[in-house]
Design a protein around this nucleic acid. Structure first.
Length: 274
DNA sequence: CCGGTTGTTCAGCG
DNA sequence: GCGCTGAACAACCG
C-alpha cells in the first residue's frame, strides 16, 4: 500500500466525501479529533506517502508506514486507528500513523519534491542531488526530501530502467544519467499508478523480486543495501557501476602519500562493473 | 507457523 | 550537539 502512487489512488477513491460534513470521528489513535465533528472536509491531498484530510482549521495527516491499510464504506475485523463517518458513508484507517497539522500544508511541504505532484521539479531534484555527491543512488531515491513518494519497489525498478548499479554514488553519475534517473523516478511512478489500478503491477516488475534479468537472462542479485539496508534487486551485468576517475585519483593520491608504490589503474568513464 | 516486508521514528552511541 | 545506526513497531501473505 505505501508508495506514492497508491496514495494517489486513495485520494481518487475518497472524492465522494469531499465537501461533506464529518458527523462522527473515533478510533484507537491517541489524537483527539472530536473538534472536527460537524466540520466540512475541504479537500483531500497527498504528499509522497502522506495522505491528508483537510478541514478549515487543519489537516489530519495519515502515513501508512509498512502495514497500514484502509477501507471505504466497509470495516475490517480489527478496531480502526481512525474512523470517519459521513452522511454518505465511512472511511476507515488501520495500523497507520495519525497526526494533526494545524499549519498550512502549502507552506509546510515542498511540493516540487513530490514525484506525483503537478509542481514536481526535476531541476530542483537535480540540484538537491548535486549537493549530496557521496550518497549512494539507492539511498538518494528513497530520500523523501528529494523524491517524495518513491519507495523500495520504485527504487529498484528505476535503477534497472536507467541501468545504474545501486551502489553508484550520486556524484559519480554522468550528467545525462543523473537527468535520466530523475526523469525516470517520476515516469515509473506514473506507470506504477496505472498498473496498480489495472491490478497488473507485479506482472510489470522487471527486477523487483525477480531471479533472472529480462534483458540478458543473467541472475538477478538480491542484497540489503544502503543506509537502511533495504532489499535491493539488480542485474550486475546490465546496471553500470559508475566510478569517476576523480575518485580514483583521490584514492591513489592518498595511498601515494602513505609511501605506497601501488598504482591504482585509472578506469574509463563508463566505470568498472562490480 | 514462521519469516519476511511497498516505512519511519527515535534512543543510544561515538 | 551532531550524525549515524539499529531496534521497535505493525499486520498480513506465502
Amino acid at each position: 500500500m505505501p508508495e506514492g502512487p497508491s496514495i494517489v489512488i486513495l485520494k481518487e477513491l475518497v472524492q465522494e466525501f469531499k465537501g461533506k460534513t464529518l458527523l462522527h470521528i473515533y478510533g484507537n489513535t491517541k489524537v483527539d479529533f472530536s473538534s472536527l465533528e460537524n466540520q466540512k472536509v475541504t479537500e483531500f491531498k497527498s504528499f509522497g506517502k502522506n495522505f491528508f484530510i483537510c478541514f478549515k482549521r487543519g489537516s489530519i495527516k495519515i502515513h501508512f508506514m509498512l502495514f497500514g491499510s484502509y477501507r471505504i464504506n466497509e470495516k475490517k475485523d480489527t478496531p480502526p486507528r481512525l474512523s470517519l463517518h459521513f452522511k454518505n458513508g465511512e472511511l476507515n484507517f488501520y495500523a497507520c500513523s495519525v497526526k494533526f497539522i494545524e499549519a498550512n500544508l502549502d507552506e509546510t511541504y515542498d511540493w516540487t519534491a513530490d514525484v506525483m505532484n503537478e509542481n514536481w521539479s526535476a531541476a530542483k531534484a537535480k540540484k538537491k542531488l548535486k549537493a549530496i555527491p557521496r550518497t549512494l543512488v539507492c539511498d538518494a531515491l528513497l530520500d523523501q526530501n528529494i523524491f517524495a513518494g518513491v519507495g523500495n519497489i520504485i527504487k529498484n525498478e528505476v535503477l534497472f530502467r536507467v541501468q545504474v548499479h545501486p551502489k553508484t554514488k550520486v556524484g559519480d553519475l554522468p550528467p545525462k544519467k543523473l537527468t535520466e534517473l530523475v526523469r525516470e523516478a517520476r515516469q515509473y511512478s506514473f506507470d506504477f499508478l496505472e498498473w496498480k489500478k489495472q491490478y497488473t503491477l507485479k506482472k510489470h516488475w522487471l527486477v523487483h523480486t525477480k531471479r533472472t534479468c529480462p534483458r540478458d537472462g543473467s541472475r538477478i542479485v538480491k542484497e540489503y543495501l544502503g543506509r537502511t539496508h533495504r532489499r535491493t534487486f539488480f542485474c550486475n551485468s546490465c546496471q553500470v557501476f559508475y566510478k569517476t576517475s576523480r575518485d580514483q585519483i583521490a584514492r591513489s593520491k592518498k595511498i601515494k602519500s602513505k609511501k605506497s608504490k601501488i598504482k591504482i589503474p585509472r578506469l574509463d568513464h563508463q566505470g568498472a562493473r562490480n
